[in-house]
Structures are given as structure tokens and as C-alpha cells.
């Protein structure tokens, strides 16, 4: 019996302030999706592969991954590469959420199959609007393919 489950949003962000602001913004959209905050790339990979401290979790893929680029241990680009190279994880929409507007980061991200690239605006209002728009677009409007695990 398939119950329509609201998929989780995975937030991979090392900075707690950014994480708090992002989660505030997402909460304001009233989407109802549970936001899972992971502090670095290694945690993200453990979660996705259901390994390490996430070994016993419900193995349902998140509906959206918001990925920061610059993180300790494993950075966002490496996580992206693993994601897009793993057939089971490949369909999950990944949006890079970063402070960097450097051309090289953009190029590398799109080369590795990112679904979106958003530069965190400095302005609080703009930042909130961007996160809200992101959440609405990917969690409601966008239709991902059905994947059986």
C-alpha cells in the first residue's frame, strides 16, 4: 500500500548560520517537507548510501538536495560527482547553494550534472526569496522520475 509520502529535503551546509537561515526560509514556505541538515559532504554520502551513522535509516531518497560547495572533509563538488555517477541517486535533483559566483565553480557543477546553481544573495530579503522559490519549484512544481530502490 503506497502512501503519498512527503519527501525530505536534504540540506548539506557546514555553516550553522546559513543552515538556520535556509531552514527558516523553507519553513516560511509551509511546504511541510522535513529538512535534514547534514554538516559536511561525508555525512551527506553516508546518508545517501545509508552507511555510517545513517546505516539504519529509512532508505527513501530525498526529494531535493541543497548542496553547499565549500565544506570540510568532502566538498560539494565531490558529493555531486558521486551522486550523478550512482544510478540509484542520479535522478535526485541537486541544487548548488553557494556564496561563490566564480565561473569555474559554475562550469564544474554543470559539467557534473547539477540541476540548479544558486548564489546566496547577501541581502536577507533576497536570500529568503531565493530559498523559498527553490523549495517551491523543486518540491512542488518539478516532477521527478519514479525510482524504485
Amino acid at each position: 500500500m503506497m502512501v503519498t509520502e512527503i519527501k525530505k529535503i536534504l540540506l548539506v551546509e557546514d555553516n550553522p548560520n546559513d543552515a538556520e537561515m535556509t531552514m527558516d526560509a523553507l519553513a516560511e514556505t509551509n511546504l511541510g517537507n522535513e529538512v535534514v541538515w547534514l554538516k559536511d559532504g561525508q555525512q551527506a554520502l553516508d546518508y545517501l548510501h545509508c552507511t555510517g551513522e545513517h546505516a539504519g535509516r529509512n532508505p527513501v531518497n530525498p526529494g531535493l538536495i541543497l548542496l553547499d560547495l565549500k565544506m570540510p572533509k568532502v566538498d560539494g563538488l565531490q558529493v555531486l560527482k558521486v551522486l550523478k555517477a550512482t544510478p540509484a541517486l542520479q535522478p535526485i535533483p541537486v541544487v548548488i547553494l553557494t556564496s561563490s559566483r566564480e565561473e569555474i565553480d559554475l562550469l564544474e557543477s554543470y559539467k557534473n550534472g547539477v540541476n540548479g546553481y544558486v548564489v546566496k544573495p547577501v541581502e536577507f530579503g533576497a536570500f529568503m526569496e531565493a530559498i523559498k522559490a527553490l523549495g517551491i519549484y523543486w518540491a512542488i512544481i518539478n516532477l521527478p522520475p519514479k525510482v524504485t530502490i
Binding site: 555553516n15 548560520n17 546559513d18 537561515m21 560547495l69 565549500k70 553557494t98 556564496s99 561563490s100 559566483r101 566564480e102 546566496k120 544573495p121 547577501v122 541581502e123 536577507f124 536570500f127
Partner: peptide
């Protein structure tokens, strides 16, 4: 570009 703007964003 990455690190210096983050604290500003947080302040704001």
C-alpha cells in the same frame, strides 16, 4: 567571494 560574504549575509 565565498567566505567573506557569508558573515555579511548572516549579519543581515
Amino acid at each position: 567571494s565565498h567566505d567573506l560574504r557569508a558573515p555579511l549575509r548572516h549579519v543581515l
